[in-house]
Design a protein around this nucleic acid. Structure first.
Length: 805
RNA sequence: GCGAGAGUGGCGGAACUGGCAGACGCACCGGUCUUAGGAGCCGGCGGUUUUAACCAUAGGGGUUCAAGUCCCCUCUCUCGCACCA
């Protein structure tokens, strides 16, 4: 190699990898399978984003590293091409997504992904919009339905007026649509749901055992949100029972009123004629509020009295029933007992409406002024007085009621069922048919896929009905059971369903008669390593965990968690600011790759910050990295026996550099500390350059260490160093632990904790051996004059600290 | 409000179980080569003062022979959840 020209080198190796199928894995014969998964991208018209590349390169390094370690690494790629993003883009540009998507995919793969040097086995590509794929997405839906994990329900849903569709709770971020940031409103609609709550407890508990990034687990824990307490039966004045959920059954004696959610169905039955107009007005007002209004911070409590009374089961006292929007229909039973003395929200409400506040737990200052939520003993609670409230008191009161069938211990989760229907066009049609005679009929498996028809007008109309409803030939069908006229479901499913199972498909793309093959799945799943962005913590990552449990529950797979390990990478910013079109600081990866090469670009992305934390992309960084690779090439390929420096390094020194670099780079890659791994490579190159060291073994080792980061260049160097096979078949270099220690160590000599001298000494000397040397040291002796030595601290091979007075 | 994480030179960032703070790189400064340098190579680069010290890891206290690292308090930022009973 004369001079390092990345464009030539990269083109050469790209075509060689392709012609020799270097990245293709023998899925059946693999001996040490390693499934290295990255989050498949949405093929946008704008092209790949640096964020995508940052994620992919970090993952690819793991794939290549494992390959060097001797694993059969399967690193597939696909396209998450259904969904509103594509549809909205097509709408805006007056095109059809079916026409745009294939072009985008082509561009992503051919002119972007393939140029980055990812070790992708393209023979297993997946495209969620192809009928061969979404046939099985629909199969998942039917499977879930048949197993009671999918159901249709009418109720309040999140509606995005801009996207003109409903959204799942997970897709509403701070009251706004995850896609378009419009304010989400509530609507009453019939929708399809998946019973994500069915596995809420397992999904939460299993997190403790998962090898995942802590922050991802934390986000899921918060989202699933378990609270333990009791369901307590109260009665209306006429004796009709109803129940409420509370985490503090110990405070039952302090319940001074009840609150129902405004949407609660029982409100109509209990409201008294005098209060009815006020209740109606309040409910209307609440219905008009958006989620943002309703959740607004520090919002003053509102509510009205229903006129009805309830009986407290512990003491038969009569307490008023109110409705207020601080009680949510979707949680617990949609009704609460209010204990203003020991709950801040109830306290605020009670103060505003002049409701009584009764202290039942001791320890607070003045519960009339402020709710006390801390620990204490029960008071004003009959025979339970004196018991420690949150422990013994809670148990005793609940058990007393439970004996009368008036309470039971329960657990509630914040998690809601996954609303999966979408009133949009660009998605997999929900495979359901409604028949007057047979009711809900899932489309039989032999009739799948339900093909998405090509509609010229696919614009959502905001009526709450999908555009597909306008296609009569699609909408009107015969019932598969009885043959009578029936109507097809026209909603499509949430595109998070497509992505919830794609990694089962990759190893099984050769099978057209099943979603995934048992043998392949046994061999390759669960995924060994999944690297991706944490923004999917409670979306894709939660949905796919749930679906995995569902598949397991229904007997299709024998594992319960889809990913053995998940690592969340950081976010990258551009020159200190978040990347955005309006700031004009979007980075176009293609420009850098064209000018400096993919290897320099990859390495800079990995060097600019800690991979798990994110980094700051600075102009000039890629160029500097190209400069480093130039120096590396020069150092590796320098002619042997060139002029050596005046003081050539000893054999031991060279060995130290070589071995300690191998050790450190391996450890750093394993913990995703790519920036420090690259720094190590730089140090080794600096050592070689500075000392004019040229040795075949150092060059070869350096090349192999470089390979995961800069694969094209590593191949080229490996060839130049006289090898004919791929560097990725050469194995990861081994190191000698003993040689990782410096031949000489520099002892730090401190006096009273301050550095006063240094001594270069052989490794492994004892305290007695070095003591005279320390005392003689002129820099040290000066600080000892006229002082008494009180204490000596000796840390082998590191430091001596003399404490004097 | 609750929970988690973070705060280190002009900048991006290092520092594993407490043991030389600032690895590695960018920017900058100086030198060299050159018709030229926005190329290459060599050197310097936290601050105050200069033979030698002292001060520095958001701020304040503490533990220790020794603290960026451990403990307590305060401030700031980022993220997650948020009227979830």
């Amino acid at each position: 190699m004369a001079k390092y020209d990345p464009s030539k080198v990269e083109a050469k190796w790209r075509s060689r990898w392709e012609s020799q199928a270097t990245d293709k894995v023998d899925l059946v014969g693999a001996k040490k399978p390693f499934y290295n998964l990255m989050m498949f991208p949405y093929p946008s018209a704008e092209g790949l984003h640096v964020g995508n590349l940052f994620a992919f390169v970090g993952s690819d390094i793991q794939g290549r590293y494992h390959r060097l370690l001797g694993y059969d690494v399967f690193e597939p790629m696909g396209f998450d091409a259904f969904g509103m993003h594509s549809e909205n883009f097509a709408l805006k540009n007056n095109r059809h997504p079916a026409e745009l998507i294939p072009k985008n995919i082509e561009r992503f793969r051919e002119s972007q992904l393939k140029k980055v040097g990812l070790m992708i086995d393209w023979s297993h590509q997946v495209d969620t919009t192809s009928p061969e794929y979404y046939r099985w997405t629909q199969w998942m839906f039917v499977m879930l339905y048949k197993n009671g994990l999918a159901y249709r329900k009418t109720g309040p849903v999140n509606w995005c007026p801009s996207c003109k569709t409903v959204l799942a709770a997970e897709q509403v971020i701070d009251g706004e649509c995850e896609r378009c940031q419009s304010e989400v409103t509530k609507k009453e609609m019939a929708q399809w749901y998946f019973k994500t709550t069915a596995f809420a407890g397992e999904l939460l508990d299993e997190l403790d055992r998962l090898d995942w990034s802590e922050r991802t687990k934390l986000a899921q824990r918060n989202w699933i949100g378990r609270s333990q307490g009791a369901e307590v039966v109260f009665k209306f004045a006429d004796g009709t029972p109803f129940s409420v959920f509370t985490t503090r059954p110990d405070t039952l004696y302090g319940a001074t009123y009840m609150v129902f959610s405004p949407e609660h169905p029982l409100v109509d039955q209990i409201v008294t004629p005098e209060q009815a107009p006020f209740v109606k007005a309040y409910r209307d007002e609440v219905a008009r509020l958006t989620e943002i209004d309703r959740q607004a911070e520090n919002r003053e409590k509102t509510g009205v009295f229903t006129g009805a009374m309830a009986v407290n089961p512990v003491n038969d006292s009569l307490i008023p029933i109110w409705i207020a929007d601080y009680v949510l229909m979707g949680y617990g039973t949609g009704a609460i007992m209010a204990v203003p003395a020991h709950d801040a929200r109830d306290h605020e409400f009670a103060v505003k409406f002049g409701l009584p506040i009764i202290e039942v737990v001791s320890g607070g200052e003045d519960v009339q002024k402020q709710a006390y939520t801390g620990d204490g003993d029960l008071v004003n609670s009959d025979r339970f007085n004196g018991l420690e409230a949150k422990t013994k008191g809670l148990t005793a009161i609940t058990e007393m009621l439970a004996a009368k069938n008036l309470a039971k211990f329960t657990t509630n989760y914040r998690l809601r069922d996954w609303c999966v229907s979408r009133q949009r066009y660009w998605g997999p049609p929900i495979p359901i048919i409604y028949c007057d005679k047979c009711g809900i009929v899932p489309v039989p498996e032999k009739d799948l896929p339900v093909m998405l028809p090509t509609l010229s007008d696919y614009r959502p109309d905001g009526t709450g009905r999908s555009p597909l409803t306008r296609d009569e030939s699609f909408h009107k069908v015969k019932c598969p059971t009885c043959g009578e006229s029936a109507l097809r479901e026209t909603d499509v499913s949430d595109n998070f369903l497509c992505s919830a199972w794609y990694f089962y498909r990759y190893p099984s793309t050769d099978f057209s008669d099943r979603p995934f093959d048992d043998e392949m799945t046994k061999k390759w799943l669960p995924v060994d390593l999944y690297v991706g962005g944490n923004e999917h913590a409670v979306l894709h990552l939660l949905y796919s965990r749930w679906l995995c449990r569902a598949l397991n529950h229904c007997g299709y797979i024998d594992f319960q968690e889809p990913y053995k390990r998940f690592v969340a990478h950081g976010m990258i910013v551009s020159n200190g600011a978040k990347m955005s079109k309006s700031r004009g600081n979007i980075i176009n990866p293609d420009l850098y790759i064209d000018e400096f090469g993919a290897d320099s670009f990859r390495m800079y992305l990995m060097f600019m910050g800690a991979y798990l934390e994110g980094g700051d992309f600075r102009d000039g960084g890629v160029k500097a990295m190209k400069g480093f690779l130039d120096r590396l090439v020069a150092a590796c390929l320098a002619p042997e026996g060139q002029t050596l420096s005046q003081k050539p390094p000893t054999e031991a020194e060279s060995l130290f550099w070589l071995n300690s670099t191998v050790k450190a780079v391996g450890q750093d890659i394993a913990r995703f500390s790519y920036n420090t791994a690259i720094a190590r490579l730089m140090e080794l190159v600096n050592f070689m350059t500075k000392n004019k060291v040229r040795s075949q073994s150092i060059s070869e080792t350096l090349t192999r260490l470089l390979a995961p980061f800069a694969p094209h260049l590593a191949e080229e160097l490996w060839e130049s160093l006289g090898h004919s096979q791929s560097v990725f078949d050469s194995g990861w270099p081994l190191y000698d632990e003993a040689a990782c220690r410096r031949p000489e160590v520099e002892y730090v000599i401190q006096v009273n904790g301050k550095v006063r001298g240094k001594l270069s000494l052989a490794v492994g000397l004892t305290e007695a051996e070095i003591e005279p040397l320390v005392m003689e040291n002129p820099g040290v002796a000066k600080w000892l004059e006229g002082k008494t030595l009180v204490k000596k601290i000796y840390v082998p091979d590191k430091l001596v600290n003399l404490v004097v007075k």
